[in-house]
Design a protein around this nucleic acid. Structure first.
Length: 449
RNA sequence: GGCGCUAUCGUCUAACGGUUAGGACGACACCCUUUCAAGGUGUAAAUUUGGGUUCGACUCCCAGUAGCGUCACCA
């Protein structure tokens, strides 16, 4: 079998989108599963839309997810300089499959051309201008989509004379994608579903340029929970932003693996390597999946808990902009690890360890129970009497007093919890007191006596 | 509107034409438990509608309906 070669071909118009990451992942997995090559190409033929720096951002993101590409990055604008696209377009003209057009792009709509499939310039025999594809009527053109797993056909009478080379000399996507995929020996083209309607144009170009048509597959679109294509407006779809929100790269990757592809055995947890191993083109889903944040959160919790404490501490430290003592983060991580689904959850749960003036500040007193006076007095006394500061002794002494005074265990600890942390939902309170230290703990309790 | 694609629990999905239609997230309940989690057990929850084909249809065919995409000298 011929070597599998896939590519990811983003436009540098901004951050890497979650859908783009998924396309890259599947392209990577398809190539690597069959020991093939995964390439990266930047499609920067529209200078107006290009965002400075996004080329680099996209590469950084890909590397972060370990989707490393083979060979050198291909940049279309550099290939423009070599005249590759112009040459192809001129060949099409020579062979009678394309024509020059001088309609003003801006005026096309006003002049009523825009809804016409056949361009008025096609028979004018112009010798300069933009170059458009000359599409014949009533031919059937088709291909086998390897994602949808179905033969898809069009009658060329529904395909319009499409611009291939703009008057500025740059190719449109349609020409560039065919020329480049052919030059790069791409065997499998995996792209978004939105490209389906322009596939007949590409097929025609392949045919007229006498090039081998690669396998083509169109991925589903990821939908927003409200319906419609996932967009920036509705929730975060920028990979970079999700990372900033505290999602782990491994979790994001695992989540999108299963958004449009599934193994027969329903296994859900995959590392990238494991995924590459089991991935195949048979498992593609045909209908559009909805982006489900709850499931992402679940994955994130799973991966967070898999992390070693040191590693997780380091991540939390960085996530909190290195503003808080790392030592304390390392100590408290074991207490909160199984209570967080996101790096951002850490602060919510553990901030009471770091607050400097908490000993003076009072919380909402209604949080306390009726016996708070008695509870806190006993707690203060016990903690105060412990000279050899250790966790086991602390717990032992507290329990002794609870039994002796016939307190309700839960109520006692709840009052203590609120005095120490100011919150009802916290990490285990004895461990917290132990980490906080005798002095601070006593001060916080005293504050409510 | 034209063209194209799609349709299984709320969501992600599994099911050689023969299963009590399975799993996961979420929800709920119970267990564990000094709170909240984590973990464990369990419950509710689906084949878009109508026609065919077949002994038998989630699965194949046709139509309706719905959703999505696309109709640029943007990708």
């Amino acid at each position: 079998m011929e070597k599998i070669r896939t590519r990811f071909a983003p436009s540098p118009t901004g951050f890497l989108h979650i859908g783009g990451l998924r396309t890259a992942l599947y392209s990577y997995a398809l190539a690597k599963h069959y020991k093939g090559d995964f390439l990266l190409r930047i499609e920067d033929t529209d200078k107006k839309r290009e965002v400075v720096g996004s080329k680099e951002k996209i590469q950084e993101a890909l590397k972060l997810f370990n989707l490393n590409w083979d060979e050198d990055l291909v940049i279309q604008s550099e290939r423009v300089k070599q005249g590759l696209y112009k040459k192809a377009a001129e060949k099409l003209i020579r062979d009678g499959h394309a024509f020059y057009c001088q309609c003003k792009a801006k005026n096309a709509k006003e002049e009523g051309f825009s809804n016409q499939l056949r361009d008025p310039c096609r028979d004018k025999k112009l010798t300069s201008g933009a170059i458009k594809l000359k599409v014949n009527d009533n031919e059937i053109i088709s291909f086998q989509d390897f994602v949808v797993n179905k033969k898809i056909s069009w009658n060329t009478s529904t395909v319009s004379d499409t611009t291939l080379l703009k008057s500025d000399g740059f190719p449109t996507y349609h020409l560039a994608v065919v020329v480049d995929d052919s030059d790069m020996h791409i065997s499998h083209v995996l792209r978004g579903h939105d490209w389906m309607p322009s596939t007949p144009i590409h097929l025609l170009i392949y045919k007229y340029l006498n090039l081998k048509v690669p396998e083509i597959g169109h991925l589903t679109d990821i939908l927003d929970p409200d319906g419609g294509k996932l967009s920036k407006r509705k929730g975060s779809v920028a990979v970079e932003k999700m990372l900033q929100e505290g999602y782990l790269a491994d979790a994001i990757l695992n989540f999108i693996m299963l958004l449009g592809w599934a193994p027969k055995d329903n296994k859900e947890i995959f590392s990238l390597d494991e995924f590459v191993k089991v991935f195949d083109e048979k498992g593609f889903q045909r209908s559009n999946p909805v982006f489900n944040r709850e499931k992402l959160d679940w994955f994130n919790g799973i991966y967070l808990r898999k992390l070693e404490n040191n590693k997780l501490s380091e991540m939390v430290f960085k996530f909190l902009k290195e503003k808080y003592p790392k030592e304390l983060i390392i100590k408290t991580i074991p207490l909160v690890k199984e209570r967080i689904n996101n790096l951002s959850d850490y602060w919510e749960l553990a901030s009471f360890f770091f607050e400097e003036n908490k000993e003076e500040k009072k919380v909402d007193e209604s949080l306390f129970g009726e016996s708070r006076e008695k509870h806190l007095k006993v707690a203060f006394k016990v903690i105060n009497e412990i000279d050899d500061w250790n966790k086991e002794l602390l717990n032992e002494r507290l329990m002794e007093e609870i039994t002796k005074n016939e307190f309700k265990t839960g109520d006692f600890f709840m009052d203590l919890r609120i005095a120490i942390t100011g919150k009802k939902f916290t990490p285990p309170i004895n461990d917290s007191i132990f980490i906080l230290g005798k002095n601070k703990s006593l001060k916080r309790i005293k504050n409510y006596l």
